[in-house]
Amino acid sequence: NRRVIAMPSVRKYAREKGVDIRLVQGTGKNGRVLKEDIDAWLAG
Score class of each variant (00 low, 15 high):
V33M: 04
E16D: 11
W41K: 07
Q25S: 13
A40M: 12
V4N: 04
A14I: 01
L34N: 10
L34W: 06
Q25N: 14
D37Q: 01
A14P: 00
Y13V: 03
G31R: 09
R15F: 09
P8H: 09
G44I: 12
N1S: 09
R2E: 15
I38C: 02
V24F: 04
K17D: 01
D37I: 00
D39C: 05
E16Q: 12
N1T: 10
G18D: 11
K35W: 05
D37A: 01
L23H: 10
L23Y: 13
R22I: 09
S9N: 10
A14F: 01
G44A: 13
A6G: 02
V33T: 09
R15V: 11
R3D: 15
G31W: 07
G18P: 01
R3A: 13
Q25A: 13
M7D: 15
E36R: 15
R11M: 04
W41N: 05
S9R: 14
Y13A: 03
R15Y: 09
I21V: 07
T27F: 04
V24I: 12
P8E: 06
E36S: 15
V4K: 05
I21F: 04
D20F: 05
G28W: 02
M7L: 14
V4T: 04
P8M: 07
D39F: 05
M7V: 08
D39M: 09
R22P: 03
L42W: 08
R22C: 10
M7Y: 15
G31F: 10
A43S: 11
R32I: 05
N30M: 13
G28E: 03
L42T: 08
D37N: 10
G44C: 07
D20E: 09
R11L: 05
V33R: 02
K29V: 09
P8L: 09
W41F: 13
A43H: 13
R32D: 04
A6P: 02
Y13P: 00
R11C: 03
L23K: 14
A43K: 12
A14T: 02
G18Y: 10
V10H: 02
N1D: 15
V24T: 05
I38H: 00
K35F: 06
I38W: 00
G18F: 10
Q25I: 13
N30V: 08
M7S: 15
I21S: 02
T27E: 03
R22N: 11
R15G: 07
V33E: 00
R22Q: 13
P8F: 04
R11W: 08
E36A: 15
R22S: 11
D37W: 00
E36H: 14
G31T: 05
D39W: 06
G31K: 08
G18S: 11
V19D: 00
L42R: 09
D39S: 06
A14K: 00
L42G: 06
E16H: 11
V19F: 03
D39R: 08
I5N: 11
I5A: 05
K29C: 04
A40S: 12
V10I: 06
V24P: 05
E16T: 11
V4F: 04
R11E: 02
G44F: 12
E16R: 15
Y13E: 03
L23C: 05
G26H: 04
N30A: 12
V33A: 03
A6N: 02
R32S: 09
R15L: 10
G31I: 02
L23S: 11
R3I: 15
V4G: 04
D39Q: 09
K29W: 09
K17L: 12
A40K: 14
E16K: 15
A6K: 02
G18K: 13
E36L: 14
G44Y: 13
A6D: 02
S9Q: 14
G28R: 03
D20I: 07
A14D: 00
G26K: 03
Q25V: 14
K12P: 01
K29T: 11
G28H: 04
G31M: 09
V24D: 00
K29D: 09
R3Q: 14
L34V: 10
Y13M: 04
D37P: 00
G28V: 03
E36V: 15
G31A: 10
I21G: 01
E36K: 15
G26S: 07
S9H: 15
G18N: 12
E16Y: 10
R2G: 15
I38V: 12
G44S: 13
K12D: 04
G26N: 04
D20V: 06
R32N: 06
G26T: 04
Q25C: 06
R11Q: 05
S9T: 10
A43G: 11
A14E: 00
A6W: 02
I38E: 00
R3L: 15
E36F: 13
V4S: 03
V19W: 00
D39P: 00
G31P: 02
G18M: 13
